[in-house]
Amino acid sequence: MQLTAWSKDLRVTAGGSGVVSHVGAALLRLLADRAGLTAGLSAGLARAGWWPMHDRGRVLVDLAVMIADGGEAISDIDVLRHQREVFGPVASDTTVWRALDEIGAVQLRRIAKARAKVRARMWQLFGGPPAARAAGRDIGTGVVVLDVDSTIVITHSDKEGAAATYKHSFGFHPILVTCDNTAELLAVKLRPGNAGANTAADHLDVLAQAIAQVPAKHRRHLLIRGDCAAATHAVLDWLHEQDSKRGRRVEYSLGWSIGEAERAAITALPAQAWSPAINADGGVRDGAAVAELTGLLHLPGWPAGMRVIVRRERPHPGAQLTLFEDR
C-alpha cells in the first residue's frame, strides 16, 4: 500500500492552481502500479532483514518513467523529485546509483520473472496479443512474431563497456528482441561496441530470454525474424530444435549473405522465375521482384527444409553498386 499511496485522490484537470510540468509521466507510473509491476519488482529485489528508505521496485519504476519522459542521465530523476506534490518521495540520483549497483545475475533473473508475470496478466486482460501483419494482411491467428536485431548506441565519453564499433563510431552494440504483435521490447543483451554482429551465443541468449517473456500459452507458434547476422548454423539449428518440441511450432525468416554461389544461381534464373514483390501494405512494389534459389544451391550442413528467397529491385538514387549488381 505504501508503494501506491502517492496516487490516492490524484486527479488530472485542465485548469486550476498548482500546475506542474511532465504530469503525463504520472500515468506511466500509475500503470506500472496497477499492473502489478512495481509490487513484483519490489518483491523480487527484497532482502530479508533489509528495509531501505526507498523501495527498490519503486526506484526502478521511477527510473523507467524518467527514461520514457526523455531522461538521458540518472541525474534527470530530479524532474520527478522536484514534483513531490504529485509523485511523493522519489529517490535521489545517488540512491538510484546504489539501487542499480545492487543488481546482479540473481536480481536480473527475478526482474525478468516479475516482468513476465505482469505481461502474462496484461495479455490475458486484453484477450491475447493482436495479430501481426505483413503484406497488408494478418500473418495468422495465434502467431507471435519476434524480431531480433542489433543496434549502435553512441556515447561521447569513455563509459564502461564502450568501444569502437564496426560503423567507425564509439559506444555500445546491444542486441534487442521485440514483439511485432505488441511493439514490446522483450529482451536486450548489453554488449560493448566491438561485439560481433553475428555472435551466435549472444543471439541464442537474448532469444531464449525473449521467448521466456512470452506467456506460456502464446509460445505455441512463434515466428523469429532477423537479418543475416542471425543466420548462423548454431542459431538455425537451435530454432529447428525448438520447432521439434511437442506442442510448439517455431518458424523463422532470416537474412542470407550473398556469395559467389548465390550470384551464380541468380544469374541462372530464367525470367519467368521472378514474381512481383509485395509492399508492407499489400500493394505491388514498383520495380521489385522475388524468386526462390533453394533448388539451385548446394546447402550442406544447413537444416533440411530451409528455403532461400532472393529479392531484386531498382537501385536507390546514389546507391553504390557492385559489378554484379550493375550487370
Rank of each mutant, 00 (worst) to 15 (best):
T178R: 02
C179D: 06
A229N: 13
L207A: 06
R249T: 14
D205N: 05
G255F: 08
N198P: 10
D243F: 01
P215H: 10
L207I: 05
A229F: 03
C179E: 14
C228H: 15
C228K: 13
Q213T: 01
N194W: 06
I211D: 06
L190M: 13
A229R: 12
L236V: 14
L236I: 14
I258V: 15
T199G: 11
H240Q: 13
I258F: 02
T182I: 03
K189D: 09
H221V: 00
Y252F: 15
G247Q: 11
A187P: 02
A208R: 12
A201H: 07
V235E: 05
K189R: 15
G259Q: 04
D237G: 10
L190E: 04
G226H: 06
G259K: 13
E241S: 08
D227A: 00
G193N: 03
E184L: 11
Q213C: 02
I224F: 06
N194G: 04
R220V: 09
N194S: 11
H221Y: 09
N181R: 01
A264S: 13
A261Q: 15
V235F: 07
D243Y: 01
A208G: 06
N181G: 03
D243L: 00
L236K: 11
G255Y: 03
A208L: 06
N194M: 03
G193S: 09
L223Y: 00
R225P: 01
A234I: 02
D227Q: 06
R225G: 01
T267Y: 01
G247L: 05
D227K: 10
T267A: 15
R225Q: 05
R263Q: 15
I258H: 11
A195N: 02
R220D: 13
A230R: 07
V250M: 08
A200Y: 01
L185A: 13
A230Y: 08
V235S: 09
L185E: 09
L222N: 08
D205G: 00
H218K: 05
R191Q: 07
A265V: 10
A264R: 15
T178F: 13
E260L: 14
Y252A: 15
A208V: 03
A208Q: 03
R246G: 11
A183L: 08
A208H: 02
T267F: 00
I224H: 08
L254I: 12
V214C: 05
K245A: 13
W256E: 11
L222Q: 05
D202Y: 07
L190I: 05
D180I: 09
D237R: 13
W238P: 01
P192W: 01
A216K: 14
A265T: 13
W256G: 09
T178M: 06
D227N: 10
P192F: 03
A208M: 00
A197L: 05
G247F: 04
K189N: 06
C228Q: 15
G196E: 10
S253R: 11
T178L: 03
D180F: 07
E251G: 14
W238L: 00
R219C: 07
L254H: 10
E241T: 12
A195Y: 02
D227E: 04
G247A: 05
R219D: 04
G226N: 08
H240P: 02
H203C: 01
A230Q: 13
A234S: 11
E251H: 11
N181P: 09
A187I: 02
L207Y: 00
V206L: 02
E184T: 07
L254P: 12
A201Q: 11
I224E: 03
T182W: 03
E241N: 07
T232G: 12
